[in-house]
Design a protein around this nucleic acid. Structure first.
Lengths: 136, 136
DNA sequence: CTTGACCTTCCCATCATTGGAACCTTTATA
DNA sequence: TATAAAGGTTCCAATGATGGGAAGGTCAAG
């Protein structure tokens, strides 16, 4: 299997497969006489693992840790759970942050006429004048 | 006011002030004879506008648009509302995405013993074996 | 044997921000 | 007044994850 086939078998682009190899996330595969990368089932399995972890929002660094734990037969599940739960916490922090932005923006958009007049509470807020918070 | 004072007056780092100037988001200020940037109240006001917009998650590009609308006395508030609401939509899409990740991870973490045994549903899921979804 | 699809390496761009080097200016202190 | 600290200046590089593209080698089918 060459890189293009491995790519379509895993959903990881050929570009990214080479990148993951270059940063040491995955091991360099064997090459053909004409320098083509050759992938087998094991490599595809690793790539799918990486793909899934990335889809779940783990960074490449975290994915590397998880990959190490996966390949370590003696690891404790507690270690994995620790990585996962701290990732959950980070995601929830991010979500709360975004929700705060949405809340503020929705309030401003609600107060904004959205018409042809130049008065705009959104811009007023951005400018640091807060007339919308007074009368509401 | 030099760049350091403008920075502490607005919460925008001196580095970023120079950057915003270099990409044309803000105008280049006057300079002293010794080439120091000089800021006045107007510039500080603009910087605060930028800071607020960035805090609300608008990209620099969007911030630039909003800044243009702010400085355009004849603009319609509808234009501003359009920028804001499409940003809200983007934020909500991102939130939903992150919530999906959290949901999956919480499910996996819940199924994971978190003990000293090597069995780990989280890794099993990442590896593409889905035993947790069966018995649940 | 040519064509087109694939592979290789290498460099560049993104987005917003930070860090640092090398150097100049201003201010405070000994 | 000499000097040191704190600030300014420009320029270059890195981050994280990915995409784009050029220049060139290789493989398959027609």
């Amino acid at each position: 299997m060459n890189i293009g086939e491995a790519s379509s078998a895993t959903g990881v682009s050929a570009k990214m497969i080479r990148y993951y190899e270059s940063i040491g996330l995955i091991r360099a595969p064997l090459r053909t006489g004409s320098n083509y990368r050759v992938y087998g089932e094991d490599e595809v399995h690793v790539l799918r693992f990486v793909k899934r972890a990335r889809t779940l929002g783990f960074s490449v660094e975290e994915t590397s840790t998880l990959l190490g734990l996966w390949q370590d037969k003696t690891r404790a599940s507690a270690e994995v759970k620790e990585v996962a739960t701290s990732h959950i916490t980070a995601l929830e922090t991010k979500i709360a942050e975004l929700q705060g932005m949405v809340k503020t923006l929705k309030h401003l958009a609600h107060c904004c006429g959205g018409d042809n007049r130049p008065d705009c509470p959104i811009l007023d807020d951005l400018a640091g004048e807060h007339p919308t918070t007074k009368g509401h």
